[in-house]
Design a protein around this nucleic acid. Structure first.
Length: 586
RNA sequence: GGGGUGGUAGUUCAGUUGGUUAGAACGCCGGCCUGUCACGCCGGAGGUCGCGAGUUCGAGCCUCGUCCACCCCGCCA
């Protein structure tokens, strides 16, 4: 290589030296991870992003110099790589077969005592880690996350490029659109009283790029949503945003299955060639979730019929007015009173009043509803659920949404509790046939389940106005191990159909023209049929890195209150800045 | 908006029924030590118990408020 001209770039990373480098004279630069001063000899672990290597200072005057080094000092070392004596090899370390005998030492920067020890095994609070994020990111497991994220995004770009996709950047300063999440707003200085909004996703732009004839678009795009945070939700996050012309659902499935086949092997996971499909309604009925974790059983059972004819009034009523479903917990008959109470508490946040349990043990049938149901009644429920002796049946009744949410959550809790989650199995699947619309009782109107540009299923089109809730969408989600990795749809490209959908959504002609006029107009000038998908990159990397929070794979994340502890953002601004923006605080 | 958990030395934590001098480990400082790799050994320093009120003879501990972090529900087309 061009070592003579690019000597600096040829310098090896500390963590990459191996036995094969023995005999090499190297210049290293890095951070002092640890110093072991044995008096007559000093060992220094020199760390960079790739790992660390042991540097040896056996003789004066270098030894005295090394003696003054402390944690996180930045140094340059020139030395010779040599094999360690056979009985001094450290098998735990990738660099453990060699060490560097120092010949030169230069302190480039001294470090204050860090607020926490920069090591994987220190458990400094996340608050402190976020305040000193640059120190936190020096920890190998954090560095690994950033490096993995880089390899993943690189592979993604490579894949889409090979597939004929073009990466196009779309505006960050754009306009607010109705529906969806709360917008982040940016006041305009030049247009008094007007605001830009940060994009919730590049949705409209990627559709316009199809009208523009790009055909295959991809962008690793930052998106912004001003909603409350979670372990898997940040106010700004990254989407792998994809859109293509002349495609059907199957084309998108193939594309994403190919992408996953490319990237998951980076972490030793090998997805199946084709992912199973599950209709939304089936996912809800069997798993109580539109992003089911199919790695274990514990599927929901139907108790509507047995409830309707039973003599326990609350369940009878629930069956008549809503749904009654349950879960069979194998061996759960042994659950204590306290455990049963905990299960009951667990469903309450979802709007269920509690749950009813049934069991048969050697002592006989038991249930809180036994007085009303009698032995045969309890037996009928257990039989309907296919529960045997020693099993526990739990039932929830109520509106479908509540029943599914409660049992879906309970199913996951029980799986964790009973250790049913397999460690090395990963399930990928497509959830298809989502409903197009969802009725909202509070505002007395329909909302788009996916977004208002999603194409209705052609065979359901005739019911769009007469029975909107029954119309299926050409929408799909890709799910891994119970996590929604992304979702998309085949879009509407016909201005007339788009108007019909807007109308069902209660968006009138005038409002549609005002807010989406540019899209409707664009569709008049030759719009190709198109569709796409967006994948949550942060979640994807989190899963691949085996981390529990997307904060762990974002270099500078916000806290759950939306604060950046490092920069102390958000913060106040000068009066003068506000005045320029024609803003006044109330 | 609602519910839960936590906040004590630089860090991670312990701290009994409210009791007089708030502890441990790691880190830090000084000393010794030639094959360590969580080096070891000896010695030492280090505290606004998140913040503000209140109860009490007396509060790290009880009460109220408040701030911060984390988890969940709502919210997130």
């Amino acid at each position: 290589m061009a070592e003579a001209r690019c000597g600096l770039w040829a310098r090896p990373f500390c963590g990459q030296l191996r036995a094969a480098d023995a005999g090499r004279r190297v210049e290293l630069a890095g951070w002092v991870r640890r110093r072991r001063d044995l008096g007559g000899i000093i060992f220094v672990d020199l760390r960079d992003r790739e790992g660390w290597v042991q540097v040896l200072f056996p003789e004066e005057p270098l030894k005295s110099q090394a003696a003054s080094l402390s944690h996180e000092d930045v140094v340059r070392v020139v030395g010779t790589v040599r094999p360690r004596p056979a009985d001094m090899v450290n098998r735990e370390l990738p660099t453990g077969e060699i060490e560097v005998l120092a010949e030169e030492l230069e302190v480039l920067s001294t470090a204050h005592v860090p607020p926490f020890v920069v090591e994987d095994q220190v458990n400094a609070s996340e608050e402190l880690r976020l305040r000193y994020r640059y120190l936190d990111l020096r920890r190998p497991e954090m560095t690994r996350g950033l490096l993995l994220r880089d390899r993943i995004t690189f592979a993604i770009r490579q894949y889409f490029h090979e597939m004929g996709f073009v990466e196009v950047e779309t505006p960050i300063l754009t306009r607010s659109t109705p529906e969806g999440a709360r917008d982040f707003l940016v006041p305009s200085r030049l247009s008094r009283g007007a605001f830009y909004a940060l994009p919730q996703s590049p949705q409209l732009f990627k559709q316009l790029l199809q009208v523009a004839g790009l055909g295959r678009y991809v962008q690793i795009a930052r998106c912004f949503r001003d909603e409350d945070l979670r372990a898997d939700r940040q106010p700004e996050f990254t989407q792998i945003d994809v859109e293509a012309s002349f495609v059907q659902e199957e084309d998108i499935y193939t594309l994403i299955e190919g992408l996953f086949a490319r990237i998951f092997p980076l972490v030793g996971i090998h997805p199946p060639e084709r992912f199973p499909r599950l209709a939304w309604s089936e996912a809800m009925e069997r798993f109580g979730s539109d992003r089911p974790d199919t790695r274990f059983g514990l599927e929901l059972v139907e108790l509507g019929a047995v409830s309707a004819t039973c003599s326990f009034e609350p369940l009878q009523r629930a069956a008549a007015q809503g749904r009654v479903k349950g879960l069979v917990v194998p061996g759960g008959a042994a659950f204590s009173r306290k455990q049963l109470d905990e299960l009951s508490e667990a469903v309450k946040p979802f709007g269920a009043p509690g749950l009813l349990w049934f069991r048969k043990t050697a002592e006989g049938y038991a249930s809180p509803a036994k007085r009303a149901l009698g032995e045969e009644g309890v037996a009928a429920f257990l039989a309907a659920a296919g529960a045997g002796e020693g099993d526990l049946l739990v039932a929830v009744g109520g509106p479908p949404k509540v029943v599914f949410a409660a049992l879906g959550a309970l199913r996951l809790q029980l799986a964790r509790q009973l250790g049913l989650l397999p460690a090395h199995r990963h399930d990928f699947l497509w959830v298809t046939d989502f409903p197009l619309l969802e009725w909202d009782e509070e505002t007395r109107r329909y909302y788009a389940c996916h977004h208002p540009f999603t194409s209705p299923h052609p065979s359901d089109l005739e019911r769009l106005e007469s029975d909107p809730a029954s119309v299926r969408a050409r929408a799909y989600d890709v799910v891994m191990d119970g996590v929604e990795l992304g979702g998309g749809s085949i879009r509407i490209h016909d201005p007339e159909l788009q108007r019909r959908v807007f109308s069902v959504l209660g968006i009138g002609e005038e409002e549609a023209r005002r807010k989406f006029g540019f899209l409707l107009e664009a569709f008049r000038y030759g719009a190709p049929p198109h569709g796409g998908i967006a994948l949550g990159l942060d979640r994807l990397v989190m899963l691949m890195a085996g981390r529990e929070s997307i904060r762990d794979v974002i270099a500078f994340p916000k806290t759950t209150a939306g604060n950046c502890l490092l920069t102390d953002a958000p913060n106040t601004v000068d009066e003068a800045q506000l005045a320029e923006l024609h803003l006044r605080l109330t």
